[in-house]
């Protein structure tokens, strides 16, 4: 297996990130985000690379990775669909949206479609309660959803 390394573009970004903080450790989470952007998930190779790059122990970096929900501990689909399931969204039909996604994608929460295109997950309150129900697809929010709208969004992802 080839060892992980950040692309030259992103590597330049690391230098800029480091300049923001009084020590290297503080760059840990932003740099992990950069790595995940490139690699899709945080493998042990990534952990080792980040540890070496920031002068941290691999155990420290691993501890950080396992603490935060958004760091993928295993490979995920090309797209990630997060359905907010917390109270404000639940009161306005998050349940229906979630079941609709499961049916449409033919998978359960936590699973990835067979073609590797979409991973379906639930999220806790995404600070969009006034426009519930809502989902996040990769970096974008979709708010005030109906099942018809969900179909349009998912169609774009799986076609």
């Amino acid at each position: 297996m080839t060892k992980f390394a950040l692309s030259p573009d992103r590597e330049k970004h690391v230098e800029e990130i480091l300049s923001r903080y009084p020590n290297r450790q503080a760059a840990c989470i932003p740099v992990l985000h950069l790595c995940q952007e490139q690699n899709g998930w945080i493998s042990d190779d990534v952990v080792e690379w980040v540890a070496a790059r920031l002068d941290l122990s691999a155990a420290h970096v691993k501890g950080v990775v396992t603490f935060y929900t958004l760091f993928n501990k295993e490979p995920v689909g090309k797209h990630q669909v997060w359905v907010c399931q917390t109270l404000s969204c639940a009161l306005r039909g998050a349940d229906e949206i979630l079941h609709h996604c499961e049916k449409r994608l033919g998978i359960h929460v936590g699973q990835t479609t067979k073609d590797g295109k979409v991973t379906l997950r639930t999220a806790e309150c995404l600070a969009s309660c006034g426009t519930a129900p809502m989902i996040q697809v990769d970096k974008d929010y979709y708010e005030n959803l109906t099942t018809a709208e969900v179909d349009r969004i998912l169609d774009r992802l799986i076609k």
Binding site: I29, P30, L32, H33, Y68, T69, L70, F71, E124
Partner: peptide, 8 residues
């Protein structure tokens, strides 16, 4: 700007 990684 500093970001977290998903933890209430």
């Amino acid at each position: 700007v500093h970001t977290g990684a998903g933890a209430y």
